[in-house]
Write a protein that binds this DNA or RNA. Structure first.
Lengths: 197, 197, 197, 197
DNA sequence: AATGAATGAGGCTTCATTCAT
DNA sequence: GATGAATGAAGCCTCATTCAT
């Protein structure tokens, strides 16, 4: 990722967010330093602080953008009329493609390391992504694909955590893109029988 | 948690581990400072360093102990002859009871924030716990309960991540003990159909 | 030594080096603390670390500068055509004037206390100064002043150590400038007969 | 060096001094820690503090012993009737053999790092060794070997520093025992013509 | 005599942040 | 808009020393 040349304020800000996101994804909130971001962007500390009040604001900006991007991608990918089951596979695959690292893995750490105590505020951050699962389930029930007595709320939580937990796949030796793709698919394979009528 | 009075080296060491584990669980590796541990134990910095070479060693000691404890508990709980399915429920429940926070959630962060690159070393840390799942699956297949073509390796990873990801339940509003218990149970309910013949 | 007012990065850096050099000369490597340097400069710890990666780099910077200064001075002082014998006196006197403390006395301690094992790296540090002696000897032999069978390498080591060891003169009660000057001169008086034909 | 077996208090104390001397010689005063000495002796910290009030006392004890040993050795070696010139060679050689490290190289560092300001106290520490040189010179003059107008005081300082500075020989690539021996001999070769009539 | 657990001051370094230019 | 020098709190760790046993 290289610094935009026809520099304009908004570009610089976006550039910082992009670089910072990569680092936060990789190192989490506390372990990422403003110096890391400065080094990786080749900008000055002053510039970063010109665009963002502090580390926290920059972090939240990154989170927000990744979340929005995911939603946008999902909206595009899922438009076509398809079965809820198919949509689960698409959703899992999108999670894999976008490697939704920060959302689950770093938000929690960010919260405790900044001594926040209001969990509701966390939830808000990934509420939109979380609702995607709920909507798929709802659709599946309405279409008669899934069991009618599924407790959507609970199952959403389970599915959401199940899929996002796979960002750790790397740790378990799933390095190639294809291996990961298969793992995400297998996850849905495994869960679908429990959902279907 | 209050300081043991009949002071003896091993007691002090164990006391530090117990306190530190709680803090690491709560704040993760980087966000936990040695000062935190000093304050919470009411011991001096020197004493903590007398018992542990450095923060990393203390952390690994904590991880190890939690892991061992889990294994020990599992060995006791799972002795009786039971179906693999039943064992999955017992295993999930044990995960809930022991709130296996540090293992999955902080190890990854620890690794990245300490610039470790050797993934094998991480795996080793929770290998024993991880194998539990594998053995249940194997047993289920041998007993004819589960599908013969299950890829044990992959499914272990999925199940392990699935269940350990639920340590985030709190975030999603599952506060009471009973709510959590139900969630863990529901997770198995959901996955069992995908495993069974 | 007082803080420069027309603050500019390079000035600050140089100011730190100048202050640090004095302290390292006086206390050696291990006994000099960054806090000493902070106190003596009236700068903040952060500022010192902004200019120098760590204590070691700062120390080496000081060493380097003192060495360079000596070489520069020598190059100026020794330009004129003179006998090798005369040059020895000039060289000894320059050593006295510049009080080459750190080079011999602290480098060794620095090396050991930082667990360095590569002797070549030490040598490099004062190689340039060391070569001065060699060149004087060579010149003396070529000019027919000194014995032809002098082993330049060995004698350089001896002369270099001889003269630099006199930085301890203070310890032996040589306090006034004149007393020291005489001592350095006497050293050459004493050694010259052994060199001459 | 291994711990004496027929343990008795005085043996233990001596053992500590012997081990500590080696470490002080190698690392100097500040860089040597009581933990180093504990590790190297395989004794407990308590034991070391039982025998020595503190690090400083232990250090001075070591210095004292090395100095005494040197004097004792010198007294034995130099008894026989010989020329002053010959004695210089013997003295230089003894310096080489005993590797008189701590005396010159660490005392200075010890003094500054402990904020001592009374130089006389340093001198006292190695006065006895220092006097050896003076006595050789005196003898040389009385015997008619050396110039009558030698300023014994000054020349002693020069000779003493000259020879003790060679403890750095290692740094200059003189590793083998034979190489060092030659260097010490060459030093005297070089200086003798300046002393002789 | 000997031990080793405990202490807290102080050492090196990193960090988020500010601000004059 | 952008820079980078400066700051001081806080982080990790080592050290000499004490003391109950």
């Amino acid at each position: 990722m290289s610094r935009p040349t026809g520099v304009n304020s908004e570009d610089t800000k976006q550039f910082i967010v992009d670089v910072a996101t990569k680092i936060f994804e990789h190192k989490g909130y506390s372990a990422t330093s403003m110096a890391n971001i400065k080094d990786e962007t080749n900008l000055s500390k002053g510039t970063i602080y010109y665009h963002f009040k502090n580390k926290e604001e920059l972090y939240l900006h990154c989170i927000q953008q990744v979340s929005n991007e995911f939603i946008r991608n999902w909206d595009i990918t899922s438009q076509t009329e398809q079965s809820a089951e198919k949509k689960l596979y698409i959703w899992a695959n999108l999670n894999n493609i976008m490697l939704q690292k920060p959302i689950m893995n770093t938000i929690q750490e960010y919260f405790v390391s900044t001594n926040k105590h209001n969990y509701d505020a966390v939830l808000e951050l990934y509420e939109p992504e979380f609702q995607i699962v709920g909507r798929i389930l709802e659709e599946g029930i309405n279409r008669g694909e899934f069991k009618e007595d599924l407790h959507i709320e609970d199952v959403s939580v389970l599915l959401y955590n199940f899929i996002t937990s796979l960002e750790n796949a790397e740790l378990f030796g799933y390095h190639s893109s294809q291996e990961k793709k298969n793992l995400y698919k297998l996850a849905i394979d495994l869960i679908v029988p429990g959902l279907k009528k």
